[in-house]
Design a protein around this nucleic acid. Structure first.
Lengths: 255, 255
DNA sequence: CACCCGAACCAATTTGCAAATGGTTTCATG
DNA sequence: CATGAAACCATTTGCAAATTGGTTCGGGTG
């Protein structure tokens, strides 16, 4: 019923035939249709007209085609590999930061409740590494390890998998430029201090304090990211600052 | 330096040679080593001795091997497919429920702030479907669609991907038995009422109320799961109730 | 007897090639 | 100008041969 007026007579005829075939159930889901050349002769039209009809059906999601494979009934199956890449392309740094701001405070809270003494020791060791790393690259490495160690200490394999997924997205996408611009000696030292507070809360089993400390830390990271992102585009930064505050409030828990 | 005493002379010699090769950097990361047959003749030992040495290196995570592919330097790459299955085998229903209890209230809160009017309409429609579905299977279907619609309305593609990941785990693993036992007419009607409250809060843009309503809903779901899980093993349920309360408190936000 | 080596065999993978298939262009036709 | 037929390109499949790790066996050496 769609796009009939834009299609030629033959294509329209073929479209009707194909719709009938699909509705009849003669072609079950996930089944491969005959090759275009065969199907064209069966229906009695040329390949060009057939392909136009198939394009319509594909756009409707009723079939999917792939070169070399064939034409299949049903929606296009999702490949986890392409799924990740597609996700990387659809998301953006702010979204990732928002998610970190939601997830990692939870992990810090759980870590405060469930971390073993060995976990705490490891966190302290990693915090020391971040503090003593001279160059920004070294800091980045130890910082990443520290955040993951907290996620491990939370003791929930599913949440850990979620953390890893977010982390992979964060690294995969080419926002390294942003991160490079976002790190300065000043900020790094503040990060180190915030890390200390998070780990102190975890070691003292103060769940709420750990959660809040991690949220404060990530808020600063988020702010750094925002200033770096918006500075080149909008030098005065007034609008972007407003936007930042709005979004930040949205993400705060209503307490 | 490890397991030397348990290895024979030739294997030990090969181990040293291989360690030297790997440390030299002559074989970069992800590079394929020569076939075992070649490597054995190069070093001047038999395949058996070589393979024992390779086993040690593989156990240390310095190399990984696969039949037909070869031997490679570095840690074994993670396949998203096997990664998912491995995760399914490592987690358990309670862990999944804990994660839902953390994630979905966030999604409800964001949905209250960002849902379009069309989103709200869709939620209302789905809620009606769950309420009017007669059999438990139908309810399950519409319930799943409703929860995902809320996740979509939150407007964060990464969080949506996380929700889908948790949902896939929840469905993949064979805990359907539990879910079947956990659903009764009584509980379902309470769920429907809780859904109404969540959606009402979203439609009225009351973020905190939406978050709390969703948390209350999932707590009831969690409790149903727990009673079903523990009832067969411990009929009186006293210990399991304590365990439930402990874990529930751990997961509550400290306010 | 313990250990090693070589060989053979098994299982999984890669490679090379032909065939199949969707995607595209060309061309003659009415 | 659209149509249909044909030809060509790019990707995939299917198959056989070669490659490679995994395993077993037998002979040799100390």
């Amino acid at each position: 019923m769609t796009k009939i007026e834009t299609l030629s007579d033959s294509s329209n005829f073929a479209l009707g035939r194909l719709r009938a075939l699909l509705d009849d159930g003669r072609f079950a889901a996930d089944q491969r249709l005959p090759p275009e050349r065969v199907l064209a002769t069966q229906i009695g039209i040329g390949r060009r007209a057939l392909r136009r009809a198939l394009e319509v059906l594909e756009a409707e999601g009723r079939i999917w085609r792939h070169q070399g494979k064939g034409t299949f009934v049903g929606p296009r199956p999702v490949d986890p590999q392409t799924g990740l890449e597609e996700l990387s392309s659809r998301t953006n740094p702010l979204e990732v930061m928002d998610v970190r701001l939601e997830i990692e405070p939870i992990l810090a809270r759980l870590a405060a409740l469930r971390a073993s003494n060995g976990d705490v020791e490891r966190l302290l060791h990693l915090a020391e590494k971040t503090a003593s790393s001279s160059d920004a690259d070294g800091y980045e490495l130890w910082d990443s390890a520290l955040h993951r160690a907290i996620a491990e200490a939370a003791g929930n394999s599913l949440l850990l998998a979620i953390f890893d997924m977010v982390d992979r997205i964060r690294q995969d996408v080419n926002w390294q430029v942003l991160r490079e611009r976002a790190r300065s000696k000043d900020r790094l030292s503040r990060y180190v201090e915030q890390h200390r507070r998070v780990i102190a809360a975890i070691s003292q089993r103060e769940a709420h304090a750990a959660e809040r400390a991690m949220r404060e830390h990530l808020e600063l990271v988020r702010q750094s990211l925002l200033t770096v992102m918006t500075r080149p585009a909008q030098p005065d930064g007034s609008l972007s600052q407003n936007d930042f505050n709005d979004t930040k409030d949205e993400l705060r828990h209503g307490t």
